[in-house]
Simulated scan of single mutants.
Amino acid sequence: APADVYKVLSTPEGVDHAFKKLDEIKADIQWWEAGAQPPEWLANGGVAMSTTFVGRILEAQAEGAAIKFGWPGSLYNVDYWAIVSGTKKKDAAYAFLSYATSPEAQAEFSKIQPVAPVNLKASALLTPERIAIMPVGDNLKEAVPTDSNFWNDNLEALTERFNAWASK
């Protein structure tokens, strides 16, 4: 279950299970290196599914590609703003953050870039069609939020193990 991903992955048995699954599908994995590759591969039948950027799928669809994206099982990240400690422009930084995270500004940005607004009140300012193509609301019901604490604690060891696995 999405809620259990990091609970399971936090155990040695969970990591072993993940790598066993990777072993099973290794011959079918196609690693992409540029954002244009997944939609192209999906459109020409080179792959059955892929991670990718929403905007790339929308571009491919606009060009006539018969591909779709789905949200169940997807992973999502939360981005953060930071103000540098000791800055002399702290008031300007707070003013910017207040504006940039307002429902109106978030909705306007989401209208031109298919990213979920961080201010949930912005969703009320978007059309249902726009919300349907973004990781927000019902689209996140079966999604997995990336656990930054898990990756802070485990990135080095898992990267080392993954690189060893990938090189076999």
Rank of each mutant, 00 (worst) to 15 (best):
Pro117Thr: 10
Gly137Trp: 02
Glu142Lys: 15
Glu63Met: 09
Lys89Arg: 15
Ile25Phe: 11
Glu33Ile: 09
Val136Ile: 15
Ala82Arg: 13
Ser74Glu: 14
Trp32Lys: 06
Glu108Thr: 06
Lys21Phe: 12
Ser167Ala: 15
Gly14His: 05
Tyr76His: 10
Ala105Met: 08
Lys20Asn: 10
Leu120Asp: 13
Thr127Arg: 09
Ala43Lys: 09
Val15Leu: 07
Leu125Arg: 07
Val115Ser: 05
Val5Phe: 14
Gln106Tyr: 00
Asp91Trp: 03
Pro2His: 10
Ala100Phe: 03
Ala124Asp: 11
Ala143Lys: 06
Ser10Lys: 07
Ser10Pro: 06
Ala3Met: 04
Gly70Thr: 13
Gly86Ile: 06
Gly73His: 05
Phe162Ser: 13
Val5Cys: 08
Lys21Ala: 10
Lys168Leu: 08
Lys90Arg: 13
Val15Met: 02
Thr101Glu: 08
Ile29Trp: 01
Leu140Ala: 07
Lys168Thr: 09
Leu75Val: 11
Lys111Met: 09
Trp71Cys: 03
Ser148Asp: 15
Pro135Tyr: 07
Glu33Asn: 13
Leu126Glu: 02
Asn139Glu: 10
Ala43Met: 05
Gln30Ala: 12
Trp32His: 12
Leu9Cys: 03
His17Gly: 10
Arg161Glu: 04
Ala124Gln: 08
Ile131Thr: 06
Ala157Gln: 13
Ser110Leu: 00
Ala60Ile: 07
Ala116Gly: 14
Glu156Lys: 15
Pro114Leu: 11
Asp16His: 01
Pro2Ile: 00
Leu158Gly: 08
Phe162Tyr: 15
Asp23Leu: 01
His17Thr: 13
Asn139Lys: 11
Thr52Gln: 01
Asp153Arg: 14
Tyr6Val: 03
Lys168Met: 03
Pro117Lys: 04
Ser50Gln: 06
Gln113Asn: 15
Phe69Gln: 11
Ala164Asn: 10
Tyr99Asp: 01
Lys111Thr: 09
Gly64Pro: 01
Leu126Tyr: 02
Trp81Gln: 08
Val47Gln: 05
Pro114His: 05
Trp151Phe: 15
Asn149Gly: 14
Glu59Gly: 05
Ala34Cys: 05
Thr51Gly: 11
Lys88Phe: 00
Ser167His: 14
Arg130Ser: 14
Glu160Phe: 00
Phe69Pro: 00
Gly55His: 12
Thr11Trp: 04
Ser110Arg: 03
Tyr99Leu: 05
Gly86Gln: 05
Ser148Gln: 13
Ala66Asp: 14
Tyr6Asp: 07
Thr87Asp: 09
Lys7Glu: 12
Ala132Glu: 11
Leu126Gln: 02
Asp16Trp: 03
Pro114Gly: 08
Gly86His: 00
Asn77Val: 06
Phe69Gly: 07
Ala166Trp: 12
Asn152Ala: 10
Ala166Ser: 07
Pro2Gln: 09
Phe109His: 07
Gln30Asp: 10
Asn139Phe: 01
Ala92Asn: 06
Pro12Glu: 13
Glu108Ile: 02
Ile133Met: 02
Pro72Trp: 12
Ala95Arg: 14
Phe109Met: 07
Ile57Glu: 02
Val78Phe: 11
Gln61Ile: 04
Trp71Glu: 04
Leu9His: 03
Ala166Cys: 01
Ala65Leu: 08
Asp4Cys: 02
Lys26Ile: 03
Asn152Glu: 12
Pro12Gln: 14
